[in-house]
Design a protein around this nucleic acid. Structure first.
Lengths: 341, 341
DNA sequence: TTGAAAGCGATACCAG
DNA sequence: CTGGTATCGCTTTCAA
């Protein structure tokens, strides 16, 4: 008699089903292959027995043999930065769901504080991921290298590869800056300023460029620009305080992302600048909080759904074509979202 | 001459390394097995060649053979609900990082609107996940069943299995309600109320129970309790409006989660109840926004780090012991976080 | 349409 | 310590 400890049933294999159904292992395999040449009746029989026994093809074994024909693990690596900005989770959940809808499985890597990114990547690669979506902010280059070395297709999401070696799908950040400037100009503001994220942050930098260039075309030659160690609410708050101290006449502000903008808004309020008449503020991303009644932040929305769809399409295509050369960069247009009025 | 299309190098296998290093495949395998009995010099040689050729053991193949000895895919399924509450992403990122630190890989499932949960679960199961962490809110039962049927260890995180068939790690929600009540009583409030999430929501319900029972012990027998279709900011806002309409004398409010509480706070402010003297508010979770200067929400923090650690420990243990019977429920104590004063 | 047999890439057992 | 061999679970020729 067995002990109660080995309650876990041995995995049911194709052989088990074959034996029970009185057919060969091949037949079982065929029953689970849509286009296989197999008699309908045989298939039904097999599937019936399979259901009865609770058999499911082992994806590990399947991928192993199919790897002869090309990659087919069905696994996609998702490299995601930390959720320090409320925009990231939103982005991430869209991405996951899109992958899922495609019948693929997301294997996740999040660089933690220890910087164990490399280990984690190695592990994913060992699982023969077919491709990678990289949305890891500043850690993207490392991740990019890892996949590039393997010839595994990868797509950057939300940022661009400085060396242009892999495709990238992102929001047109210069356009973001330009439209932010347009908005503030339309409001007849006299003293606009900018609060950005990390000085080396690509997106932040491009938004700043678009912003100040547009302004300079209208005669604003010196626009105060502050940068921060990150893209957080707290940084926005601090930066706005500093801005008010150093440039008390400021009457319009563009922040590189909503998190910064929300922080800035609270700092402005704390300083008594509560009315939209005295001060214009605009952010970028369109995080859920921006729509909260307490904030009503005007912002430039990133086209999340499009970004995700395009990135996935692109990745799937390059997996299918087995080409990682000829990288492309796709810049999608942000959408202006007017609030607070 | 090959065309430029087949630029992707064929995967390097152990045989390639063996041949090049002048040893057997077994030797290569041993070189990559920490405790294997192999001459240090041989190992170094092999590793050198491996590095040179860019060889990495194929995890798929490895898991396949190791499955003889027991589960060893290194894969853990993470079933996560939608990120409709800012607490979820926070939770999720902690979980992922913890898994990663353990050298495991997270395979993610997020039930999307279409309810394709079953398909996605089937897929994960096919990949021979060793265990599952289920933090999917209301969809947990389905997910639980799927893993239970396979005898795959699973742990519920943040909620409990109504039928008590799998282990669960969660915050002590009754204690949350009790301490919330204590706080409001300490403030000498006369007319406390409660705003919860879904009426059938387990956590919300337990928090409510703890809350009203504690209050009733002090003589409050009829406490207005509102429920909502979800746990969102918007619902909190609406519910608070309704509360102020139906019970204008309310002077203290406990919300089942911070998202609801933040919404309620904005509704209170919009109604002119701005001062902490006139109105006490307390939430639960301790999401990042609760600490923002604009809110300064007093709340009962869920011990995220502990929850994650315990859940993982528990899962690993039951994977190792191969037992899915004798489920346990662990309730961790919330931490009171006093703000706004 | 079907079954037998040959792998996919790696590990573990067994002699040497 | 080392190399040969069986095996993991599945798909895929190749004949029949």
């Amino acid at each position: 008699m067995k002990t109660s400890a080995d309650q876990r049933p041995r995995t049911v294999t194709a052989s088990d089903v074959a034996r029970r159904a009185g057919v060969s292992r091949s037949a079982v395999s065929r029953a689970f292959t849509p286009e296989a040449s197999i008699h309908p009746r045989t298939r039904e029989q097999v599937l019936a027995v399979a259901r009865e026994l609770g058999y499911r093809p082992n994806a590990l074994a399947r991928s192993l043999v199919k790897s002869k024909q090309g990659p087919s693990s069905g696994l996609i690596a998702v490299v995601m930065g930390e959720f320090d900005n409320p925009f990231q989770p939103h982005f991430f959940s869209q991405l996951t769901q899109a992958l899922q809808a495609q019948g693929r499985v997301a294997m996740l890597v999040m660089p933690d504080a220890q910087g164990s990114l490399d280990d984690a990547l190695e592990r994913l690669i060992a699982y023969q991921v077919e491709g990678a979506i990289i949305a890891a902010g500043s850690l993207s280059p490392e991740a990019t290298n890892a996949f590039l070395a393997l010839g595994t297709p990868a797509v950057l999401l939300g940022r661009e590869d400085p060396r242009g070696r892999v495709s990238a799908i992102l929001t047109d950040n210069r356009a973001v800056g330009e439209r932010a400037a347009d908005y503030l100009l339309r409001q007849q503001r006299k003293a606009p300023a900018f609060i950005g994220g990390r000085a080396d942050g690509q997106a932040s930098h491009e938004r700043q460029q678009g912003f100040i260039e547009t302004l300079s075309r209208t005669g604003f030659n010196t626009v105060p620009c502050l940068s921060n160690p990150d893209y957080s609410y707290a940084s926005g708050y601090r930066a706005a305080q500093q801005l008010l101290r150093d440039h008390p006449d400021t009457d319009a502000l563009f922040c590189a992302c909503d998190a910064l903008a929300l922080g800035a808004m609270d700092a402005l309020r704390a300083a008594g600048k509560t009315s939209p008449e005295q001060f214009s503020l605009i952010g970028c991303d369109d995080v859920p909080q921006a729509a909260w009644p307490g904030y009503q932040l005007t912002t430039l929305a990133q086209p999340v759904q499009q970004l995700v769809t395009q990135a996935l399409d692109h990745l799937i295509t390059s997996i299918a074509s087995q080409r990682t050369d000829s990288p492309e960069v796709l810049r999608l247009t942000p959408e202006f979202v007017q609030r607070q009025s």
